[in-house]
């Protein structure tokens, strides 16, 4: 099989881990593929740069906020200097750029398998109610507000405590109206309007990772229940589950929106009801779990993109444990020197 060079971002395997290392591992686990991994980093200290058994070459990328031209120039350079056939972007901040310019990127001979910009906007929390209704899942009582008066009204209607969330980023739990106003101001200052006020639903946190083929079909999905999270709320231990309500909602999400690419639905289960809390339009940091239980989602995505045969087995083992651990790499200073001075290693 011909070699496929895959660019993977989110190789910041730190306390708030990016998904890239798990995605790279999954691709390399598929021994029928001939894959080389290019790490697309935004900082010379991203650990993935130094994991040479996973990543063949790393490049520092310009920030997506710097615009299309600089980003595309960098991709062209990587393509010319090392080779780049496909990219799996794994960071929220990159997705709009890849979604918007996917056709132009593909014209460079670099494949991507990402949602359209229209699909990407479905993740906005002020659209969660609409999505939830269409895919047959509940959401906590939610009000979208754009002023202090509306905020106070929403807090009174929902009852304290409430979650105060930005449309795309940030979420805080407010126990008093005053706190809600503080968080409202904080999010508006940083991310703008609208603000979402949401009922706090207690229960078990469970998520599903999946990949849609863009034609309404699933390329696989896996459910996880979080057993242990870090102080940053990142999953450290989990167990594979088969919650049919959640999986049905994920299937419906793929089918209803012809979702293309990876996604994660964050849910809470309470007394048999499943509530949708958030949609992430990319692989989550724990997505290697799927490959570990026999459902290699990054490989299925790559295979679909390249017209290669995909395993028909979409089943996985329930009751498998996912355990993260920390590890150290001791290496020479040279990779650090090179990446800091030349932007590549």
């Amino acid at each position: 099989m011909r070699e496929i060079i895959v660019g993977v971002s989110g190789i910041n395997a730190v306390d708030n881990p990016g998904p890239g290392i798990g995605v790279a591992r999954a691709l390399l686990d598929d021994k029928d593929l001939n894959v080389k991994i290019v790490g697309l980093a935004y900082d010379g200290m991203e650990p993935g740069i130094y994991l040479d058994w996973l990543i063949d070459r790393s490049y520092i990328m310009p920030y997506p906020s710097g615009g299309y031209d600089a980003f595309i120039k960098r991709l062209e350079y990587i393509k010319a200097s090392f080779g780049l056939d496909f990219i799996i972007p794994n960071l929220d901040s990159e997705l709009p750029l890849y979604a918007k310019y996917s056709e132009k990127i593909e014209k460079l001979g670099i494949g991507v398998f990402v949602p359209t910009l229209k699909q990407f906007h479905l993740r906005a929390k002020n659209r969660l109610a609409e999505v939830a209704e269409k895919i047959g899942i509940k959401i906590p009582q939610t009000e979208v507000v754009t002023s202090h008066d509306e905020l106070v009204e929403a807090v009174e209607k929902i009852g304290l405590p409430v979650m105060v969330k930005g449309a795309l980023y940030k979420a805080y739990r407010a126990h008093t109206t005053q706190q809600a106003i503080e968080y409202y101001n904080k999010i508006v200052a940083e991310w703008g309007y609208p603000i979402v006020v949401q009922q706090v639903v207690s229960g078990e946190e469970m998520n599903v990772v999946g990949v849609g083929d863009g034609e309404g079909n699933s390329l696989g999905m896996l459910g996880i229940r979080k057993l242990w999270i870090t102080s940053l709320g990142k999953i450290w231990t989990g167990v594979s589950i088969r919650n049919q309500k959640m999986l049905n909602a994920a299937s419906s999400f793929i089918h209803t929106y012809n979702w293309k690419g990876a996604f994660e639905l964050e849910c809470i289960s309470n007394n048999g009801d499943v509530y949708l809390i958030e949609i992430n339009p990319r692989f989550p940091a724990w997505s290697y779990f799927a490959a570990g239980v026999g459902l290699n989602l990054p490989s299925n995505m790559l295979r679909k993109a390249f017209g290669l045969p995909i395993s028909q087995n979409m089943d996985y083992k329930v009751g498998k444990l996912y355990v993260r651990y920390t590890y150290e790499v001791i290496t020479d200073l040279q990779p650090f020197q090179e990446i800091m001075t030349k932007g590549e290693w």
Partner: peptide, 17 residues
């Protein structure tokens, strides 16, 4: 429920044990 001989009970729907 998945019930093991040593009394460990696992609910595959919720992940509770």
């Amino acid at each position: 429920l998945a019930i093991s001989e040593n009394g460990f009970i696992f609910d595959p729907t919720t992940g509770e044990s």
